[in-house]
């Protein structure tokens, strides 16, 4: 019973997160300017991190947690570097 509830809600929430990644990818591809693309990339990173966490719940192993942590770190670094690039025209001065 509880396995059925968990399985169905995990499937539904994974599909919702995939749809969220699709919306963010739409903004990355079709964003009118560069800052819109960077914003979409940040949302894409967050949705991917949450999707990997739901895969971890589905498989019951804590290995996925480390992948999600690395993705969160990469999201911060990449968005900060891209914002710096948009501001100054170069990343490391």
């Amino acid at each position: 019973m509880s396995a059925t509830i968990l399985l169905w809600s995990l499937t539904l929430s994974q599909w919702m997160l995939v749809a969220a990644m699709g919306c963010a990818a739409f903004r990355v591809i079709g964003g009118p300017r560069a800052q819109d693309r960077v914003l979409g990339l940040d949302a894409l990173y967050v949705a991917a991190m949450l999707l990997i966490l739901t895969f971890g719940i589905r498989s019951g192993s804590t290995i996925y947690f480390e992948a999600a942590l690395v993705i969160a770190l990469l999201a911060f670094v990449s968005t900060a570097a891209l914002a710096k690039f948009l501001m100054r025209g170069e990343v490391i001065e």
């Binding site: 929430s13 749809a19 919306c23 949302a43 739901t54």
Partner: peptide
């Protein structure tokens, strides 16, 4: 199981709403 399912559905629905706003 019910609590985990509700939290999962609420979290993913809010993420989806945020990207629809995007």
């Amino acid at each position: 199981a019910i609590l985990v399912s509700l939290l999962l559905l609420a979290g993913s629905a809010l993420t989806l709403l945020g990207t629809i706003g995007l």
